[in-house]
Write a protein that binds this DNA or RNA. Structure first.
Length: 467
RNA sequence: GCCCCCAUCGUCCAGCGGCCUAGGACGCCUGCCUUUCACGCAGGUAACACGGGUUCAAAUCCCGUUGGGGGUGCCA
């Protein structure tokens, strides 16, 4: 099958996988699934420092979490070095590459001496230097002509060869650089479409020049994706931006929601339905429809989409996902106070209110905590600005002391006092008991919390009132 | 400096020469529902960067300007 599509995701293992890389992986995967092609995973660990198992896991694990399954690989470039070395030897033998022993400093000094703008200028090109311990191999870039990158997102992108330097293809320690590994592997693995970030567009003519010099035939089609940027519209960076996929996972984002959101960055369905199953996205996806402009990674919208996915979860699934955030020692209350039954009963009300699972404790903390602290704004709005608060507290306490302790009777007691006094009684009670003027319905939660604890909370609010 | 890319509401996307008095989503605002908040529902706010062409007709094609971004390593 000659027109079988083959794409690859080829990250360098430089730490955790971030959302930008995940988006590249996703678009490759979508294209493979859309066309019935093959998705190859390749780890670009050409650099000695990058060959570490934990770095590899940092890539594989998030991909698995997202459900981006690969059909081939992972191939490791560190295990294929002999192929790149052979390619470099061939280029040298053919006179298409040569040895150079100039250091960066020497190059700069030479430029200054010759009054040239900084750059390499092919200084050692025709010196016929031998290989040596401190020598690099440089590729002989043609002096004239144009290298054309065929990009299915950007069209034909032309680079004048005269603007390209004789770039290094083998380091002085003998290791090949990624440009060589790229050409060799893409050829060897039969890659038909290279889908990756736009930050690599400028390296593409170099790879194509190598490709041609190595006699590999037609080059793959490229698709350089628009960059994902931060609020300042700068390329997302691990150092600056909070973009670790693992962190999103820890906060309780769902992989399906993350995938759905990522698919909407640089691409969009033309029927304007944004939140939809991945199968529908696969069906509609095409490289030709990808945007050119960079996209802001907006966690507000991610939160909204994640919230929608949470609301689509079954009660059981939600409970299972929220459970780790409320049952452990990290929860904001004494661990011994926690009751799985109580949380399970309240969970459906929590489910409509959270954007991510890690927010779950914020809605039930007051039920399990010994004491509650009053949110300043809530106190002001719900107590200070409310009418007849002392009377409401008096009346509610009196009823609470004697009434049956069920959700219904609790509700009747609170509303009853409000009616008798002609005032709204729920919010003051809510603030007194939960510390806030918003949250899940009180009644079931109060029943679970118990009569004494509830009355105690209102009493301490009364005390606050007097001070 | 040089090379390359880009430009529709604050943000993400739809638009591929007439269906556009520019559509959807997030955010924000208003109302309904509700004796909280949220969900849900109904509304509102807000954009084709600018200037020239081409054409009967341009957000859509071409050129320029401006603005933004990326790359310029013995990192990938």
């Amino acid at each position: 099958m000659t027109d079988q599509i083959r794409v690859r995701f080829a990250p360098a293992p430089t730490g955790y996988l971030h959302v930008g890389s995940a988006r590249s992986a996703l678009f490759n995967w979508l294209y493979a699934r859309h066309t019935g092609g093959t998705f190859v995973l390749r780890i670009e660990d050409t650099n000695e420092e990058l060959k570490q198992d934990e770095f590899i896991d940092a890539i594989l694990e998030p991909l698995q979490w997202l459900g981006l399954d690969w059909d081939e690989g992972p191939h490791f470039q560190s295990e294929r070095t002999h192929l790149y070395v052979a390619a470099i030897e061939q280029l040298v033998a053919d006179g298409k590459a040569y040895f150079c022993n100039m250091s960066r400093e020497q190059i700069d000094a030479r430029c200054e001496a010759d009054g040239l703008p900084s750059g390499y200028h092919g200084f050692s090109r025709d010196l016929g230097l031998p290989d040596s311990d401190d020598a690099v191999v440089r590729f002989r870039v043609p002096d004239s002509g144009t290298t054309v990158v065929d990009d299915s997102i950007r069209g034909r992108v032309e680079f004048e060869n005269a603007n390209l330097e004789d770039f290094v293809i083998r380091r002085s320690d003998g290791s090949p650089v990624f440009l060589v590994a790229n050409a060799v592997d893409d050829a060897d693995m039969g890659i038909t479409h290279v889908v990756r970030g736009e930050d690599l567009l400028n390296t593409t003519p170099k790879v194509q020049l190598l490709w041609e010099a190595l006699g590999y035939g037609p080059t793959p089609t490229y698709a350089h994706l628009p960059l994902l940027v931060n609020e300042a519209r700068k390329k997302l960076s691990k150092r600056r931006d909070d973009v670790s996929l693992g962190e999103f996972r820890e906060k309780g984002y769902l992989p399906q929601a993350m995938l759905n959101y990522l698919a909407l960055l640089g691409w969009g369905p033309n029927d304007e339905v944004e939140i939809r199953p991945i199968e529908e996205i696969i069906a509609q996806f095409d490289l030709a429809d990808i945007n050119k402009g960079s996209a802001f990674f907006d966690t507000k919208k991610l939160d909204h989409i994640n919230g929608e996915y949470i609301r689509m979860q079954s009660a059981e699934a939600f409970l299972a996902d929220a459970e780790p955030y409320v049952s452990g020692a990290d929860a904001p209350w004494p661990e011994a106070n926690y009751s799985a039954e109580v949380f399970a009963a309240l969970a459906p009300e929590v489910q409509t209110r959270v954007a991510v699972h890690s927010e779950a404790p914020n809605f039930v903390d007051w039920v399990f905590a010994d004491e509650v602290s009053y949110d300043e704004k809530s106190w002001k709005k719900g107590i200070q600005k409310a009418k007849m608060v002392p009377e409401i507290f008096e009346g509610v306490i009196a009823k609470f002391e004697t009434c049956d302790w069920t959700a219904d009777t609790i509700k009747d007691a609170v509303f009853g006092v409000g009616e008798e006094l002609g005032a709204k009684s729920q919010v003051p009670v809510r603030v007194a008991v939960t510390g806030r003027n918003f949250g899940i319905p009180l009644w079931d939660a109060l029943e679970a919390m118990g009569r004494e604890k509830t009355i105690g909370r209102i009493r301490s609010a009364q005390a606050q009132l007097d001070t």
